[in-house]
């Protein structure tokens, strides 16, 4: 299609912006490190300060990778859901994945006090939150998949996802109501989301899930384009609706589920980035949209993380709040400026 040539330049530009924001992200923080020293740290030469090398390699670099993986992964799952449901309000969490994860984490953090000391030991394990939220997302995913195999109507799956979300949110509220303040605070902090706590080992695991999820999304590109005509046309063009739906749900779950497990429920990026990209690149061809959304998500997350660091200060703001604070005005401004909602 002629689109591909027309937009190749733009995609390359986006990639350059990703790299630039990543470099700026590494350079800024509680201590600011000059760009030259970042390059030195990468290429094993002399760095002005030994602690800088440590900060870059052990802290900021894994955080940059986490930002790129979470931003792009959430944006892709948002795009997949928006196209699958042909609904601009859909995001990575419409299937109730984050609610499942929240429930898992809430049970570990706040349930311990309710159900006695049996789970208290788990609290100290570094992996306990990751495992709890993975199991939570997985259970919701299985429920949604079971429902989707029984249902022919895609819209019904959307409603069922919302119902699961309400159910789990209700259980979390009950847990929170009976929890002591300290545990409640721990849970609230988890729900703020965080990019900075991941070791290289965890980044590796996250990137494996990311890679599989993106790969599945890429295999769906043709069917996603066909779905732009609606399910009935897609079916008449030879798309197996239920199989395609299954693959898309699994890809979304791998991406959003693993990201929630490692970085908490970062909601906004997945919903906003596909809209941002569609406003900038007025095209619905997923061969362009998918790579553009991957890079758009990474850029937004990197920029938000820079802002969240409050460069030069000791404080870090919750990433979940920053993504909305920066992203929402941009989406609003773009929509008002164009006066046309492209979907």
């Amino acid at each position: 299609m002629p689109n591909q040539k027309k937009y190749t330049g733009l995609l390359v530009l986006l990639l350059v912006v990703v790299i630039l924001t990543a470099l700026v992200n590494i350079s800024l923080g509680s201590v600011n490190i000059p760009l030259m020293d970042i390059f030195s740290a990468f290429f094993k030469e002399e760095v002005s300060s030994d602690s800088w090398r440590y900060i870059i390699l052990e802290y900021r670099l894994p955080k940059v990778f986490t930002a790129i993986l979470t931003g792009s992964g959430l944006a892709v799952s948002g795009l997949l859901m928006q196209t699958l449901f042909r609904n601009p309000l859909a995001g990575p969490y419409v299937l109730g994945l984050s609610s499942g994860a929240s429930l898992g984490v809430a049970l570990i953090l706040m349930g311990a006090s309710l159900f006695g000391g049996t789970m208290a030991g788990l609290l100290f394990s570094k992996w306990s939150l990751v495992i709890a939220s993975s199991i939570g997302s997985l259970l919701v995913l299985l429920a949604v998949l079971l429902a989707s195999s029984k249902l022919r109507d895609t819209m019904a799956i959307l409603i069922i996802g919302l119902m699961f979300a309400s159910l789990t949110a209700a259980i979390v509220s009950v847990l929170a109501y009976f929890s002591p303040a300290a545990q409640l605070q721990q849970y609230v902090f988890w729900s703020f989301g965080s990019l900075g706590n991941l070791s290289w080992e965890e980044v590796l695991i996250l990137s494996i899930f990311w890679f599989i999820g993106i790969l599945l999304a890429v295999t769906c590109i043709k069917n996603l384009n066909t779905l732009l005509l609606g399910e009935q046309y897609a079916k008449s063009l030879g798309v197996s609706i239920s199989r395609n739906r299954m693959v898309i749900i699994i890809a979304t779950s791998l991406l959003a589920g693993s990201i929630t497990a490692f970085a908490g429920p970062i909601a906004f990026v997945g919903l906003a980035v596909p809209h941002l990209i569609r406003q900038v690149i007025p095209v619905n061809d997923h061969r362009i949209l998918l790579p553009a959304v991957i890079m758009g998500g990474a850029i937004l997350m990197l920029v938000c993380d820079i802002a969240a660091q409050l460069p030069g200060s000791q404080y870090t703001l919750p990433i979940n709040a920053i993504t909305s604070l920066i992203g929402a005005p941009v989406v609003i401004w773009l929509l008002i400026r164009k006066r046309k909602f492209l979907f």
Binding site: R86, L228, L229, G230, Q232, Y233, S236, N284, L342, F343
Partner: peptide
């Protein structure tokens, strides 16, 4: 097929 009133992306 040609159907009417499908949720076709007008973009």
């Amino acid at each position: 097929i040609v159907l009417t009133e499908q949720p076709i992306s007008k973009n």
